[in-house]
């Protein structure tokens, strides 16, 4: 069992940024807004987090800056798609390009500078339990935050009135509007939450995962997060399965190469994507479940008639 500890720790840290970004996007999409700019928001979050932590020497301020950075970019997206009713797909794609460029610009001075790093949080007592202790109770604080967020988001969406309004807006904005709910305001908040989560995910990359800043360091994780949301049928629980699965298979692909199994590395590199898609498609084969959970107004603009 000793040998399992390293791999399990790696898998959890590898899936945390995906989980965070996907969770934010899940809430955004539940409100009916499709924001394809996750990668861009992550990149800006990563650079803001790194810059703030580096300038102040306080990683926690970095986390805050990462969240704010993601939210500022999301705010821009909200202004465009909700305020000016631009096309969500086009705006989202533009946001990714913009975010990647902007982050490279902001980060110019921080390339090649080592980051302060985030201390691990050991929960006294519990972290001494063999195996389980190190894995569950000796992570960095952002990993705990990610798991707490999963539960909070699930509770919010399915167990609160606010969640019901969010889903109503995403499923049928005309009816929600007729009932007197502020569609645009709800959507704007959801977009901002998505930005905060994506920024946090970016901050995780530049502060915890590999404490450094380099342009394009998100390396496509925003897109994977986007795909996870769809394949998880907009359900937080399945998102966890998807993120962990992706993390596990990515790690396994590298691990198998090290042992020398003789499977072409290109195939192993493809494996995480393939497995995650196949598994999530299979568990989401239930048509009714998909119909119930897919936000019916996803990607559609709404103009309240005044």
């Amino acid at each position: 069992m000793e040998g399992l500890e390293g791999p399990l720790l790696t898998i959890i840290t590898a899936s945390t940024p995906l989980l965070l970004a996907a969770l934010g996007e899940l809430v955004t999409e539940r409100s009916g807004v499709l924001n394809l700019g996750v990668e861009g928001m992550m990149a800006v979050g990563a650079v803001c987090g790194f810059a703030a932590a580096n300038l102040t020497g306080m990683p926690m301020l970095g986390v805050l800056a990462a969240i704010l950075g993601g939210m500022v970019i999301a705010f821009l997206f909200g202004l465009l798609t909700l305020g000016l009713v631009t096309n969500q797909v086009a705006s989202g794609l533009a946001l990714t390009l913009f975010g990647l460029g902007l982050s490279a610009l902001i980060g110019d001075a921080f390339v090649g500078v080592p980051g302060p790093g985030m201390p691990k949080l050991y929960i006294p007592g519990l972290s001494d339990i063999p195996l389980v202790g190190r894995i569950f109770f000796a992570q960095d604080f952002m990993t705990y935050l990610a798991w707490a967020l999963v539960i909070a988001v699930w509770y919010f969406i399915f167990r609160t009135r606010g969640g019901l309004v969010l889903r109503a807006v995403g499923d049928n904005h005309v009816s929600a509007h007729a009932l007197g709910y502020k569609v645009i305001r709800v959507r704007f908040l959801a977009v901002l939450f998505g930005g905060a989560c994506a920024g946090l995910a970016g901050g995780y990359l530049s502060l915890v995962y590999t404490p450094q800043w380099t342009p394009n360091m998100t390396a496509g994780r925003g897109w994977i997060a986007l795909a996870l949301v769809v394949f998880a049928a907009w359900l937080p629980g399945r998102l966890v399965v998807g993120a962990l699965l992706f993390g596990a298979v990515s790690y396994l692909a590298l691990y198998l190469q090290g042992i020398g199994v003789g499977i072409p590395s290109q195939f192993l590199s493809m494996l995480p994507y393939l497995t995650t898609i196949v598994v999530l498609v299979v568990i989401s084969r239930n048509r009714t479940l998909l119909r119930i959970n897919t936000p019916a107004c996803l990607g559609q603009s709404f103009v309240p008639d005044r």
């Binding site: 790696t10 590898a14 940024p17 990359l205 995962y209 590999t210 450094q212 380099t214 394009n216 360091m217 390396a219 994780r221 990515s250 790690y251 590298l254 190469q257 090290g258 042992i259 020398g260 590395s265 290109q266 590199s269």
Partner: peptide, 16 residues
Amino acid sequence: KIVWVNSWFDPGKEGD
């Protein structure tokens, strides 16, 4: 022991 990551630059994957 050799591991191919099929990328010149991916800090996360290289770290993993």
